[in-house]
Amino acid sequence: MNGLIQFISDNLQIIYILILAIFVGVEVIKNIPAVLHTPLMSGANALSGVVVIGAILVMLQSDPDDYFSLALGFIGVVLGIINVVGGFAVTGRMLQMFKKKN
């Protein structure tokens, strides 16, 4: 129990952000027309590629002769940025097609 209280007080800021971000995510997505579900899923998918920043940090913080970290970091960056660039590009391509004719 003391451990839990200690944990909460140590990470209070992160817990606040976590809870608020969960609500923002829910509110932002609520009541979205089904027309946009596919582009939205694809856009959110691109956004989850934000993990690429972690992979870049891994590479920046590696010792120059730590080939294990550099190699895994490299693959992480490649995979993460595929997720980001591919995701946004394909979402853009889909949305390009939604047009109203007059």
Binding site: I14, I17, L18, A21, I22, F23, V24, G25, V26, V28, I29, L40, A44, N45, L47, S48, V50, V51, I53, G54
Partner: peptide, 11 residues
Amino acid sequence: MLVGGILVGSA
């Protein structure tokens, strides 16, 4: 990363 990830998670 934290906020971006959670947004995607809850959405």
